[in-house]
Amino acid sequence: MNMDASLIDRFLEMMAAERGASRNTLLAYRADLQGAATIVGGLSDATQGALGALSAAWATLAASSVARKASALRAFYAFLQEEGMRDDNPASVLPRPVTRRPLPKVLSTQEVDRLFALIEERVAVAHPAPADLRLAALIELLYGSGLRATELMSLPRRALAADRPFLILRGKGGRERLVPISDRARAAVSAWLSHVAADSPWLFPSGKTYLSRIRLYQLVKALAAAAGIAPERVSPHVLRHAFATHLLEGGADLRALQSMLGHADIGTTQIYTHVDSRRLVELVNSRHPLASMALHKPNRRVDDAASAS
């Protein structure tokens, strides 16, 4: 159980830094994970068979409660798998009650412009601070390529080639995907690289390893506050959501977006179509062939005559 406590702490740290989870969410996840650990006798080495017993234990709970508990466990084991601490995700046996999925938090393009305007102001000086050059590279890659925080932090020093507008990442579940890298992002990374030690294995080093999720989370929050945006609305994961939403608004294909985000199931990607529903309605009203046809109005005199008879 001591191993469980350590792993749960590390998982919740990731949820706070990468996902921007609130204090209440973290407390709920901790309670859910500890409760499940008590039922199955420990989470770190639990099997699918052991987790299967949770369905019976949750039988009297509301669907929303079961969904939250199962989601916490799936996310926990996905984290262990991604960090190389497990080869499998035994939570696949857990129930998936039908509940309404919440829409992701997103920023408007105007708010993202404010973030970049502030960054550009800081790096446009004669001798920009290395911290500002690093921040520029981080934000360009978060919003410009939709990287997960863990993927971004652990990029090798030479991950980006000057003559290659993409990189190949190994993300969740060991799946490889091709991620486009904009000219802006490559230029920002190039400017930052001059401040990275030549013998560093990491693009964003910190001490003996790379920048932590918590530090990235703090940097993004501080940038939002300086740009006049409520810090609680912004996190590394929110910038990933903004990348996806704004691409879809610009006409990106859903399958292409799925590939760029590294989603195994297109159903995960489809959540962004709900965010974009207003634009789709406007598109139908303005671009559909019927939109250019005059609406037929009934002849009032005929209608009046018919009603009089």
Rank of each mutant, 00 (worst) to 15 (best):
E13K: 01
A28R: 01
N89C: 10
A137Y: 11
P97N: 08
V302Q: 13
S259E: 15
L280V: 11
R96W: 00
V66Y: 02
M153H: 01
Q48G: 15
V179F: 02
L118H: 14
L193Y: 03
I139P: 02
F79Q: 07
A136Y: 06
G52D: 15
L280H: 05
A306R: 14
V302W: 03
I266E: 09
H263P: 02
V196P: 07
H274Q: 15
A191I: 07
D32G: 07
W58L: 01
V40H: 06
P97Y: 04
T269F: 03
S194M: 09
A17I: 04
L295I: 08
K221I: 02
H195T: 03
T245H: 06
Q218H: 14
G144A: 05
A306V: 13
D265H: 08
R186Y: 01
K297Y: 08
L295S: 08
I214Y: 06
A17H: 04
A197I: 00
L167A: 00
M15G: 00
A129S: 13
V66P: 01
K221L: 03
P104Y: 01
K208E: 15
A252Y: 05
V196C: 10
A46E: 07
A16F: 03
L160S: 01
N285A: 05
A126R: 14
R114N: 11
Q48N: 07
S6K: 09
G35L: 11
I266D: 09
Q110E: 15
R255E: 11
L193S: 12
A62W: 03
A136L: 09
R184D: 09
E13L: 10
A117D: 15
G171I: 05
A244M: 10
R255K: 10
L43Q: 07
T209D: 15
P298W: 00
R240D: 04
S6V: 06
T273K: 11
D4E: 12
D304C: 00
L73W: 05
T25H: 03
L239W: 08
R158K: 10
V234M: 08
P289C: 08
H237E: 00
Y210C: 07
N24D: 13
D87G: 10
H237W: 03
H246A: 08
V302I: 14
A136H: 13
R177P: 11
R19M: 07
E232D: 13
L169C: 08
D32R: 09
L248Y: 09
E111R: 00
R186F: 02
V66L: 06
P97W: 01
I139H: 04
F79I: 11
R175L: 04
P90Y: 09
L118K: 12
D163W: 05
L248A: 07
S154C: 05
K221F: 04
G207L: 12
P231N: 11
A75Y: 00
P165Y: 01
S277F: 09
T268D: 00
Q81V: 04
A185H: 04
L280D: 10
